[in-house]
Simulated assay, not measured.
Amino acid sequence: MNAHTRIPYAVQLRDLSRSFKGKTILDRVSLEIPRGQFVSLLGESGSGKTTLLRALAGLDDDAETRGEFDVPENTSVLFQDSRLLPWKSVIENITLGLRRQDARPAALDMLNAVGLSDKSNVWPSTLSGGQKQRASLARSLIRSPELLLADEPFGALDALTRLRMQELLMRLVERERPTIILVTHDVAEALLLSDRILVLKDGRIAEDHLVSASHPRRSHDPKLISLRAKLLQSFGVAERV
């Protein structure tokens, strides 16, 4: 992994397979993701999306793994639940394990960036669901990760809060410039955020689409409408007029 600074890719997979108790979930996946690219993983439940993400994060030690993959050492994971420690304040959660002299000023700056500048000293239990996810996003990005792995981080939020979090994520991406792999079931979310969309089926990459529309994106963009129709068709869903 010491070669990461010498290659143009943040992520490289070569024939990666993963099995649990003899059942293959990922089947010889090969993939290269350039640095700074925002990739969304789409697929039905059981297609291997989360298994792929957890493999890259170094989780699920009980899995049988074959093949090779390279990821940056500085990788952060954003889960669907915020996983904030309830006995620590918001700022203590964000700086937990952070080894830098300016940890607190950096945390305050990041809290300001996610709109929680007035919540630094409160308990997580006092935050709304959206605020908890903002704090979790701040905790991930304060470490300036080269790679951010996001497993449906907005899936449990209401529609309006989800839209606000998507806009916030894009603003922070422009500021921090990490490579991102986002697991989502939401085609619209993938189209709004991603540079590239991968469709997983039966543990393999069945489709690989580049999203050429510029930001900020609008749902009525002809490029997005065309790609949306293709993606929905791949899941057997007819586009509604």
Results as ranks from 00 to 15, higher is better:
K132Y: 12
R6W: 06
R164Y: 00
S47N: 03
P86H: 05
L31C: 03
L200H: 01
L160Y: 11
H185D: 02
D202N: 13
G129N: 12
L148D: 10
S214M: 12
E92C: 01
F154A: 04
S117V: 12
Y9E: 07
L160A: 13
A113V: 08
S117D: 15
D158R: 08
R6P: 05
R164H: 11
D186M: 01
D118K: 15
M110F: 06
D221V: 11
I142R: 03
A213Q: 08
E239R: 14
D118C: 08
E207C: 07
F154T: 08
G58S: 04
T51H: 00
V211I: 13
Q12E: 15
R83G: 05
S82F: 05
G58H: 05
T65A: 02
G58P: 02
A150G: 01
P72G: 12
N74I: 10
L53Q: 00
F38W: 15
K21N: 15
P178F: 15
V71C: 00
A159D: 07
Q166L: 01
N2S: 15
E207S: 12
S76M: 12
S136V: 09
T126Q: 14
S212Y: 00
E189S: 02
W123T: 07
S234K: 15
A159W: 04
P105R: 06
W87C: 08
T179L: 11
D15V: 02
I181D: 01
S120K: 04
E176K: 11
K119Q: 15
Q101S: 14
L26D: 01
T95H: 00
L84P: 04
L59T: 03
P222I: 14
G22W: 05
S194Y: 03
I7H: 07
A106I: 05
R218N: 12
I225Q: 15
P222Q: 13
D27H: 10
L111C: 08
R66N: 10
R139K: 09
F38K: 04
A138W: 01
S234L: 13
L182N: 06
I33S: 00
R175H: 12
G67H: 03
H220I: 09
V77I: 13
A213I: 03
H185T: 09
D70P: 07
L84R: 01
G155I: 09
A206F: 10
D27A: 04
T24C: 04
Q131V: 11
R134I: 10
L16N: 06
D186Y: 06
E152W: 09
T184R: 06
S47R: 01
K49A: 08
A135Q: 02
S144A: 13
A106R: 11
L169R: 00
P145F: 10
R177W: 11
N112V: 06
A106Y: 00
S128R: 12
H209K: 02
A190E: 06
D102Y: 03
I205V: 12
S214D: 14
L16H: 02
K132M: 13
L96R: 01
A103M: 00
G67Y: 05
A206C: 08
K230C: 09
V187G: 08
D208Y: 04
K132E: 09
S136F: 07
R175N: 10
L193P: 07
M165L: 15
P222D: 14
L160F: 13
V173C: 00
G46E: 00
V199Q: 09
L141W: 05
E68G: 05
H209M: 05
V199D: 01
A107F: 05
I225A: 14
S140G: 10
E68M: 02
K119W: 12
L198T: 07
G115V: 13
